[in-house]
Write a protein that binds this DNA or RNA. Sequence first.
DNA 1: GATCTTGGTGCAAATGATTCTCATTAAGGA
DNA 2: TCCTTAATGAGAATCATTTGCACCAAGATC
Lengths: 146, 146
Amino acid sequence: MQEHENQFRDFLKQKGLKLTKSRNLVLEAAFKLHEHFDAETLYSHIRAANVSLATVYRTLPLLVEAGLIQLAVRSEGRDRFEHILGHPKHVHWICERCKQVAETDLSSLQEALDAEAKSIKFQIGQITINITGLCRNCSIDEYEQD
Amino acid sequence: MQEHENQFRDFLKQKGLKLTKSRNLVLEAAFKLHEHFDAETLYSHIRAANVSLATVYRTLPLLVEAGLIQLAVRSEGRDRFEHILGHPKHVHWICERCKQVAETDLSSLQEALDAEAKSIKFQIGQITINITGLCRNCSIDEYEQD
DNA sequence: GATCTTGGTGCAAATGATTCTCATTAAGGA
DNA sequence: TCCTTAATGAGAATCATTTGCACCAAGATC
Ligand SMILES: [Mn+2]
Ligand SMILES: [Mn+2]
Ligand SMILES: [Zn+2]
Ligand SMILES: [Zn+2]
C-alpha cells in the first residue's frame, strides 16, 4: 500500500466520504504520471475502466484538499496539476515562447517564505511560484532574430 | 501625461498597432483601480463609453505584453489582474477560507530568484508567487471550531 | 453476509468565461 | 483630405468545468 493511498483513505474517512473504485483510479493515475497533467489526460488513462470525466473533475479538488496534488500551471485554458508526495517543492520557469516549463528546487526560498508567513501569522497550505519569461534557447533565438 | 500612457503608446507604436480610444479607456480603467480586477469589472467602468467587453478582453493581453499589468490570481473561475507600474512586486497570501488576499513585499526573495535565473540563463518576465492557506483570522477560527 | 442509508457515479445537459466572426468604423501615414 | 488596414461592437461560438438526475455501491449496522 503506497503512502498516497493511505493518505487519501485517511482524508476521506476524516471527511466522512467514501473511498470508491473510481476515486482510487483517479488517484493512481495522478501518481503514475510524473509530469503535469490535466483532467482530460487523467481521464484518458482510466476511461477504459468506465470512470467518467465528471468524476475526474469531482475528484481533483478532493486530492488537492487532501494535499496530494496541487495546481501547477494553467496553460491553453486548462488547469494542469502535479502530485506532491515524493516531489519536492519547486519553482516553475515557464517560457512564453516555447511553452516549456523547467523546475528548480525551492529550498533557497523556503526559509524567507516561512519567516514572512510567521510574521503575518499565515498558515501556509500550498506555495506556487511561477516565473514567466524566456528560457535559454528562446532568448538566444530572440537575439539572433533582431 | 501619465507614465503608463507613454509606455503603452510606445509599446503599440513599436508593434505597429494603433492607439485607439477604446484601448486607452481600458488602460485608464486599469490604472484607476488599485485592487485586483477582472475583465468584467473593467468593462463595468467603461461600458458607458460604448467599449465592448470583447475589446476589454482583446486589450488585456496587450497590457500584459506591454508590461503594464499582470495576472494576479485566478479566483472563482475568473482571471484577475493588477497594474504593475507604481506597484512594487509582491507575494500574494490567499486565504482558502475567507478568500482574502494579503500582499507582502517581494524584495527578500528577489535576490535568490535572480541568482537562480542567472544560473539557468532564464530571462525573467514576470514573477508570480501565490501562497494559499489560512490567514490569521481564519486559522484562529479553525482552532476554535474543533 | 444481508440490509439499509447515504453519498457517489455515469451520462447528458447547462454554465460561463473567453474567443471568434463579420460587417462597419476610425487610426494615422501619405 | 484620402486611403489602407487594423480595430471595434455585437452577438454567436467555444470549450473547460459544473450540475441535475436516476441508478449504484460504499460501508455501517445487525
Ligand atoms: Mn511542477
Ligand atoms: Mn496583488
Ligand atoms: Zn523557450
Ligand atoms: Zn481568511
